[in-house]
Amino acid sequence: MERREVSFRIYRYNPQADRTPFYDNFRIAVEKGITILRALNHIKEHLEPRLTFRAFCQAGICGSCAVRINGVARLACTTQVWDLLTGSGDDPILIEPLGNLEVIRDLVVDIDPIMEKLKRNYSWVRPAIPEEEMGRREHLVSDEEFETINAASDCILCGSCYSECSMMGVNRSYISPPVLLKAFRMNNDTRDTLGCQRLREATADNGLWDCTHCHRCTEHCTKKIPIMDGIHRLREEAFARGMTHSEGARHARAFYDDIRDLGRLKEVTLPLRTKGVLGSLKMVPLAVRMGLKGRRPPLLAKRIPEIGRVREIYRRLEANRCGEAVGAIHELPQRPASRGGRCL
């Protein structure tokens, strides 16, 4: 059995006793095949009984042991120490609590804000079956229907995407990736009846349109769920349901229009079309300073040659709109658009 000495550098903080967080270093002998969680357990049992962390299933299912390992969120129970060893083997493995959440102690964070947001955003199925008939008759979901939400249903609420989200890092009120993923999952559940209400909540302030598309949620999902795709699908749903009275939706619409009209983005009026007259007024000073440096889009953007070809594509797609001309294209499939009608 391969075995070597490995150093761990672990975040320590007891808010009731410590003025500031600090790091402890431990060096232990580790065999190949040992996970970060086993290493943490070893340290707790043999070296530092006060070291505090959460863990339960040891099988990557319960989601409770997510921590930041070498700077990014991962599950301690599915991360092999061996996979993290550098050539020299002398760099310590850094273990810290998840980001964007308050530390309760050491590696344990308070996940209540995630739970609160899940509650506020109707992160459950509200079925069509009346309450009194619940449990008396079945409401079946076919394999095909489940396929749409299969990947999204794998979410174990470990909080890794919450920890790595760019927008969460600067706005704790942001709806957050796991809540948006749940909204996608529930809105595409064939038993559910809350589509419009849930989408309205998701598109409120600090919501769906604030996502920066940094793809950190997808990249760091411990269950390999393409979370960002779920967010894409929700934005598509907002358009399909006519919920387009937001800066984010107007911004997206401008790209659609400009490609048809010019072939290129007409940047000069993009702020105006996104934010409206009042909203874009405060951008004028910066725009003037940029203009003085020559950093300005042409006032009359020129059309690409043969723009008619692009308009013809638009025309044919518009004519086919109801017929699923190109249809669902993303990694996460979506139920046919006909299921989600416009919201009043």
């Binding site: 997206a252 790209f255 659609y256 400009d258 490609i259 072939g263 993303h330």
Partner: peptide, 26 residues
Amino acid sequence: LERGTCCGGSNLDYVSPDHFLAVNGR
């Protein structure tokens, strides 16, 4: 690519996935 269009800047597909795929396929 003189005849190439704007890619849609990760926005076009929200408005219409079909248009996104068609113009970028082009």
